[in-house]
Structures are given as C-alpha cells and as structure tokens.
C-alpha cells in the first residue's frame, strides 16, 4: 500500500499522471490527511535530494568561498585582541633586566664594603706648625718626618722638642 503511494507520488511530481488519475489523486490529498502528510514529506525529501545532489559542485564552491571570507574576517577580529598582550610581555622582560642589574649592583656594593680594613680609615690631616714658636727646628723636622709617614722619628723629635 505504502509502496504504491510512493510510486504515485513520484508519477505526480514528474507530471506523468493521466487526467483521471490526477483528479483522483488531488481529491485524495484533500480528503485523506495522512495521505497528504505522506505526500508533502515525499515532495520535500525529493526536493531536498534534488537540490543537494544537483548543486553539489556549486554548493561546495560557495562553502569554500564562505569559509575563506569568514576566516579572514575572524583573524582580523582575533588579532587586535591579542596584540596588547605583546608589549606587556616586553615590559615584563625589561623589568626583569632592571631588577637583575639592581641586584648585581647591590651585591657588588655589599661585597665592597662588608670587609672593612685598616687602610679604609687610615687617613691623616697634614700636621700644621705655628711659625715663630720655640724649638722650631725640631718641630719642622718632626713635621717633615710625620708627613713622610715616619711616625717613630716624628714622635722622638716631638718628645725631644717639648
């Protein structure tokens, strides 16, 4: 029964029904809801298959073109969103360089001043002498000796002078 319907559906769609058959067919479409539904579905499925198979090449070409335009469009949208991230990474790199320089400098200075030795503080103002005082000669000698760092001699001379 169903099979017979399918055959008639196809004949109707191909315009192959004779006048009498055509009248009977259309009358049944109006009176039999299930028959009508079955026919509508058959017609839709046929039309779908026909479109799909007949236009396969065209449809494929359209799909490819659409895909290309879509990709180009979305790549443009996606890149400006990612772009601002780059300078951030760059700044982070700069910060890292600056930080290591500060740390190295700090370490260097710490090492320089962490072991004080006597010579760091061993500085003396040159000795001054007041002119016209007594025992001038000994004082002059002592001054010379002191200024040439001969402290022992300077000490002796000063002790003798006073």
């Amino acid at each position: 029964m169903e099979d017979q319907n399918y055959i008639v559906f196809d004949q109707y769609l191909q315009g192959e029904l004779a006048a009498e058959e055509l009248i009977a067919f259309e009358a049944r479409l109006k009176s039999d809801a299930r028959f009508e539904t079955a026919f509508k579905l058959y017609k839709d499925v046929s039309s779908h298959l026909q479109h799909k198979i007949e236009n396969e090449t065209e449809t494929h070409a359209f799909r490819e073109n659409l895909k290309n335009i879509s990709n180009t469009h979305f790549n443009k949208i996606k890149t400006p969103l990612e772009a601002p991230k780059k300078p951030k990474v760059f700044r982070l790199g700069q910060l890292a360089i600056a930080a290591s320089v500060v740390i190295l400098l700090g370490l260097f200075m710490f090492n320089q001043f962490s072991n004080p030795v006597y010579s760091d503080y061993n500085t003396h103002e040159p000795m001054t002498v007041i002119r016209g005082a007594d025992g001038m000669e000994a004082v002059m000698e002592a001054t010379k000796a002191f200024n040439s760092a001969d402290y022992i001699k300077a000490n002796d001379l000063l002790r003798d002078g006073t």
């Binding site: 099979d3 319907n5 399918y6 055959i7 196809d10 079955a38 499925v45 298959l49």
Partner: peptide, 17 residues
C-alpha cells in the same frame, strides 16, 4: 529503476517519519 527510485525515496520518508 523508476520503481526503485520511488521506493528508495519512500523508504527515506519512512525513516524520517
């Protein structure tokens, strides 16, 4: 071929239904 075509499309409509 004609008959088979109708029946194949018919079978498809049945699956859909």
């Amino acid at each position: 071929a004609r008959k088979k075509k109708s029946l194949c499309i018919g079978q498809l409509t049945k699956l859909v239904q």
